[in-house]
Simulated assay, not measured.
Amino acid sequence: MNKETAEKLLAISMDCSRDTNESIKRVMECCDEGTFKIYRGHGGKIMGYLFTEVIAPIQSEHLELAPPDFKPMQHTERPRLRLTKESQDDLLALLNRLYEQIETMAGIVRENCDKVEAAMYRSRTHEVLVHVADAMACVLAADIEEKEG
């Protein structure tokens, strides 16, 4: 990722972290301790995943954007698929269709269910989308072989 994009994503991430922290403070100020503890758990997950899945990988790639005490993440090489270009293209087309279908499901739920149910299904469909995107990354990173014969 280029530095300009990294800077933009880090700025948005920091805004999200501040907003999440502010929401935790608001619940602490106006709710009982039990409610606060429940909500703080959700806020903690938001900020934790934001750091481990967005901020730390960016700062590991662009150490000049990291604080002085930052310890870069170790990069581990994933096993790579070996595909023909045709197989890669076919798999990407299938995964893109799958991604779009799951996004459509989320939209249907959002438009046709109560707010609580819609939020729960958005979370569930998001989890599926994470794995579809991981599969896409795996296919895109494949070693491309020449087609035999």
Score class of each variant (00 low, 15 high):
Asn2Cys: 07
Asn2Phe: 01
Lys3Val: 09
Thr5Ala: 15
Glu7Phe: 00
Glu7Lys: 14
Glu7Cys: 06
Leu10His: 03
Leu10Met: 07
Ile12Cys: 04
Ser13Asn: 02
Ser17His: 08
Ser17Cys: 02
Asp19Phe: 02
Glu22Asp: 15
Glu22Phe: 04
Ser23Val: 01
Ser23His: 03
Ile24Met: 13
Lys25Met: 12
Lys25Asp: 14
Arg26Thr: 11
Arg26Tyr: 03
Val27Gln: 03
Met28Gly: 00
Glu29Thr: 05
Cys30Val: 08
Thr35Asn: 07
Thr35Arg: 09
Lys37Asn: 13
Tyr39Arg: 04
Arg40Tyr: 06
His42Asp: 14
His42Trp: 09
Gly44Phe: 02
Gly44Lys: 07
Lys45Thr: 15
Lys45Trp: 03
Lys45His: 10
Met47Asn: 15
Phe51Trp: 08
Phe51Thr: 03
Thr52Tyr: 06
Thr52Pro: 00
Glu53Leu: 10
Val54Phe: 06
Val54Tyr: 01
Val54Arg: 03
Ala56Gln: 06
Gln59Lys: 09
Ser60Trp: 05
Ser60Pro: 01
Glu61His: 10
His62Trp: 12
His62Tyr: 07
Leu63Ala: 10
Leu63Glu: 12
Leu65Asn: 07
Ala66Asn: 08
Ala66Met: 09
Pro67Lys: 08
Pro68Lys: 13
Phe70Met: 07
Phe70Leu: 09
Phe70Arg: 10
Pro72Asp: 11
Met73Cys: 05
Gln74Leu: 07
Thr76Pro: 00
Thr76Met: 14
Glu77Met: 12
Glu77Tyr: 05
Pro79Arg: 05
Arg82Glu: 15
Leu83Phe: 03
Thr84Val: 04
Lys85Phe: 01
Glu86Asp: 14
Gln88Trp: 02
Asp89Asn: 11
Asp90Gly: 01
Asp90Ala: 15
Ala93His: 03
Leu94Thr: 04
Leu94Ser: 06
Leu94Met: 10
Leu94Glu: 07
Leu95Gln: 03
Asn96Tyr: 06
Arg97Val: 00
Arg97Met: 05
Arg97Ile: 01
Tyr99Trp: 06
Glu103Lys: 15
Glu103Phe: 01
Thr104Met: 11
Thr104Tyr: 11
Met105Ala: 14
Ile108Phe: 12
Val109Cys: 12
Val109His: 10
Glu111Gly: 04
Cys113His: 07
Asp114Gln: 09
Lys115Thr: 09
Val116Asp: 15
Glu117Cys: 14
Ala118Lys: 09
Ala118His: 05
Ala118Thr: 06
Ala118Gly: 11
Ala118Tyr: 02
Ala119Tyr: 02
Met120Arg: 10
Ser123Ala: 14
Ser123Glu: 12
Arg124Gln: 13
Arg124Lys: 13
Thr125Ala: 13
Thr125Met: 13
Thr125Cys: 15
His126Trp: 11
Glu127Phe: 05
Glu127Gln: 15
Val128Phe: 09
Val128His: 05
Val128Ser: 13
Val128Cys: 13
Leu129Asp: 02
Val130Pro: 01
Val130Gly: 06
Val132Pro: 02
Ala133Gln: 13
Ala133Gly: 00
Ala135Leu: 12
Cys138Ser: 10
Cys138Asn: 04
Cys138Leu: 14
Leu140Asp: 06
Ala141Lys: 12
Ile144Leu: 13
Glu145Ile: 11
Glu145His: 02
Glu146Thr: 11
Glu146Pro: 00
Lys147His: 10
Glu148Pro: 02
Glu148Cys: 02
